[in-house]
Design a protein around this nucleic acid. Structure first.
Length: 413
DNA sequence: ATTGTCGCGAATGCCTGCCT
DNA sequence: AGGCAGGCATTCGCGACAAT
């Protein structure tokens, strides 16, 4: 997400607020994410609840300090990568730590520092990230939007939500992003409360909690620093088991209510009675004649923020908030200039890029040939996972010789 | 605009057995 | 016994994809 995407743009028609004057029902019906095409000027649809949330005074300072940490961490990570004295793999004998271990320590340190900066300056807002497939996004979005204003989400810390609109070019498996904003991402209890409502009342596919500070300084999942881009992952907030139970309840309720495509998740507010399963097919996007917009982005890069959206309530004017270049750090290839290893003398095995079949297609196939699971499951899945060496040794100590003698397969010099 | 998982190739630690 | 070579086992990173 781009650095300034967390502000509700002023003079932007795809925003609903309590003082908007129109009904929320009309708004969500009129501006459905599947139907609003982002021509570069309308990347998001926003809904804001009653709660007023002011941006912390120290947000700009926080961003400056955080950007320094990020820069420093990115450089450290790059140095580790290039440091020949740090082995790729750790070594038990010498006690040497691997690049990965050293790197993760640096990243964990950075995460702690960023948290401290956020809290020191009171800039701790953030959002739950939710991904929604194109054919269900309207339903999920309208449910969440209404919930934020006058539903179960309204009684949680959540105060605002936005959803991404449809891309200009029809993309086959496009996933919309829904962000549900919260005032303090470090308040675990509040995060859990919002998460429970999103699961129980909206059946949402949650991805994690991301801080606005991270967004502003450009930390995303592909950032070269490798700093985890989310403050909380799902299972860190509530257990997988509880999450599954809550979703089960949602879908159970869904199944029990009329499988009628006219239902919508907004009813889930008090009575979770909606039909994700019976969701209508993705409505035909009204393809507008493509206006030649010189300001419109011709890239799908989320960071290419449309000019209109930059007329934000809180403009991030400082240069220091500019996200670091994502491409600047990554080396071209891991092969680099290393001498060939012994293993590399092995005949190259052909790369067969097997991909999973279409889930919808395979679902019916599964039913048809339920008896031949092994035929279609990936080999790795069908077989027992390889034992780790240490595990093998543990077992062998009890049961027999440490290692089976191997037959020489080649004559040594 | 995220995480987890899978499947794969590459790299390399570590073990074994042969040879001196 | 120690060095060495061969080769297995494991780690790591990457790209693609699915997610209720």
């Amino acid at each position: 997400m781009a650095k300034d995407e967390d502000s509700v743009p002023s003079e932007y028609k795809y925003v609903w607020q309590p003082e908007s004057g129109t009904s929320l029902d009309d708004f969500v019906q009129k501006y459905r994410p599947s139907m609003v095409q982002n021509d570069g000027t309308k990347p998001w649809i926003w809904v804001t609840g009653d709660k007023v949330h002011a941006t912390a005074d120290g947000w700009l300072t926080a961003i400056e300090e955080a950007a320094d940490i990020l820069k420093e961490t990115t450089e450290k990570v790059e140095a580790i990568k290039n440091d020949a004295s740090i082995p790729v793999r750790s070594n038990k004998k010498t006690g040497a730590r691997s690049k990965k271990e050293v790197r993760e320590e640096v990243q964990a340190e950075a995460t702690e520092k960023l948290k401290a900066i956020s809290q020191k300056h009171g800039y701790v807002t953030g959002k739950w990230l939710i991904f929604a497939p194109a054919d269900k996004v309207d339903m999920i979005w309208s449910g969440i939007a209404k919930s934020i204003v006058s539903g179960p989400l309204a009684s949680t810390a959540a105060f605002r939500a936005k959803v991404s609109t449809s891309p200009e070019n029809d993309q086959p498996h496009y996933q919309h992003v829904i962000c549900v904003y919260v005032p303090d991402v470090y308040d675990k209890d509040a995060m859990a409360e919002v998460m429970r409502v999103l699961l129980r009342n909206h059946g949402a596919a949650l991805s994690g909690v991301k801080s606005d500070l991270y967004t502003y300084i450009g930390i995303d999942s592909k950032h070269p620093s490798g700093i985890p881009s989310t403050i909380w992952k799902n299972n860190a907030v509530i257990s997988d088991v509880e999450a599954k139970e809550l979703k089960d309840i949602f879908f159970k309720d869904l199944a029990e209510t009329k499988p009628d495509t006219t239902a919508s998740t907004d009813a889930a507010a008090d009575r979770p009675a909606t039909t994700l399963a019976a969701a209508p097919k993705k409505p035909q996007l009204k393809k507008k004649k493509k206006v030649n917009d010189p300001f419109a982005s011709d890239s799908d890069e989320a960071d290419n923020e449309p000019e209109n959206d930059k007329t934000a309530v809180k403009p991030p004017s400082a240069n220091s908030t500019k996200p670091l270049s994502k491409a600047s750090i990554k080396p071209p290839s891991k092969a680099s200039a290393k001498p060939p290893s012994r293993a590399s003398a092995k005949p190259p095995s052909k790369k067969t890029t097997k991909r999973k079949a279409d889930p919808f297609e395979s679902a019916s196939e599964d039913e048809d040939r339920s008896g031949s699971d092994s035929d279609k499951k990936p080999v790795k899945k069908a077989t027992k996972p390889l034992k780790k060496r240490s595990k093998i040794e543990e077992e062998d100590e009890e049961e027999g010789p440490k290692r089976q003698p191997r037959k020489r397969t080649s004559v040594r010099k």
